[in-house]
Simulated assay, not measured.
Amino acid sequence: MSRSLRHGALAATAIVFSIASMSACSAGNDAQTLQVRPDNAATSVDSIKIQNANVITQPEHDAEGPAVVSATLFNDGDKREILETITLPGSNAQVKLHAAEGKGPIIVPAGGRVIIGGKGNAAAVIENGREATRNGNVQQVVFKLSRTGDIGLGATVVPATTFFEEFGPSSLPELPSPKPTQTSPTPSGESSQTPGVPSDSPSGTPASSTPSDSATAS
Score class of each variant (00 low, 15 high):
Met1Ile: 07
Arg3Tyr: 12
Ser4Met: 07
Arg6Val: 11
Arg6Cys: 06
His7Gln: 14
His7Lys: 14
Gly8Lys: 11
Ala9Thr: 10
Leu10Trp: 05
Leu10Gln: 09
Ile15Cys: 07
Val16Met: 13
Phe17Pro: 00
Ala20His: 06
Ser26Thr: 13
Asn29Ile: 08
Asn29Leu: 13
Asp30Ser: 14
Leu34Arg: 15
Leu34Met: 13
Arg37Thr: 15
Arg37Glu: 14
Arg37Ala: 13
Asp39Val: 09
Asp39Glu: 08
Asp39Lys: 06
Asn40Leu: 09
Ala41Tyr: 00
Ala41Met: 00
Thr43Asp: 04
Lys49Pro: 04
Ile50Leu: 09
Asn52Asp: 14
Ala53Leu: 12
Ala53Gly: 12
Ala53Asn: 11
Val55Glu: 00
Thr57Gln: 10
Gln58Ala: 05
Pro59Glu: 02
Glu60Lys: 12
Glu60Val: 10
His61Phe: 05
Asp62Tyr: 11
Asp62Pro: 02
Glu64Trp: 10
Gly65Arg: 14
Val68His: 03
Val69His: 06
Ser70Phe: 01
Ser70Val: 05
Ala71Lys: 03
Thr72Lys: 10
Leu73Asp: 05
Phe74Tyr: 15
Asn75Met: 02
Lys79Phe: 11
Arg80Phe: 08
Leu83Val: 04
Leu83Asn: 00
Glu84Trp: 05
Glu84Pro: 02
Thr85Val: 05
Thr85Cys: 02
Asn92Phe: 02
Ala93His: 03
Ala93Glu: 01
Gln94Trp: 06
Gln94Leu: 09
Gln94Thr: 14
Val95Trp: 02
Val95Leu: 06
Val95Asp: 06
Leu97Ile: 09
Ala99Cys: 08
Pro105Arg: 07
Ile106Ala: 06
Ile107Asn: 05
Ile107Arg: 03
Ile107Cys: 01
Ala110Ser: 11
Ala110Phe: 02
Gly112Arg: 07
Gly112Trp: 02
Arg113Ser: 12
Val114Asp: 03
Ile115Thr: 13
Gly118Glu: 00
Ala124Asn: 01
Val125Ile: 10
Val125Phe: 03
Ile126Gln: 01
Gly129His: 08
Ala132Trp: 08
Arg134Lys: 12
Asn135Ala: 09
Gly136Gln: 02
Gly136Cys: 03
Gly136Ile: 03
Gly136Tyr: 00
Lys144Ala: 11
Leu145Asn: 00
Ser146Asp: 03
Arg147Lys: 15
Thr148Leu: 05
Ile151Glu: 09
Ile151Val: 13
Leu153Asp: 01
Leu153Val: 03
Thr156Ser: 13
Val158Asp: 00
Ala160Pro: 00
Phe164Arg: 01
Glu166Leu: 04
Phe167Val: 15
Gly168His: 07
Glu174Gln: 14
Pro176Gly: 11
Pro178Ala: 10
Lys179Asp: 12
Pro180Ala: 04
Thr181Pro: 04
Gln182Arg: 12
Gln182Leu: 13
Ser184Asn: 10
Pro185Cys: 05
Glu190Ser: 15
Ser191Asp: 12
Ser192Cys: 03
Gln193Lys: 09
Thr194Arg: 09
Val197Leu: 08
Pro198Cys: 10
Ser199Phe: 04
Ser201Tyr: 08
Ser203Ala: 06
Ser203Gln: 05
Thr205Cys: 05
Thr205Tyr: 11
Thr205Ser: 11
Pro206Asn: 08
Pro206Ala: 06
Ala207Thr: 15
Ala207Val: 14
Ala207Asn: 14
Ser208Arg: 10
Ser208Cys: 04
Ser209Tyr: 13
Ser209Pro: 00
Ser214Cys: 02
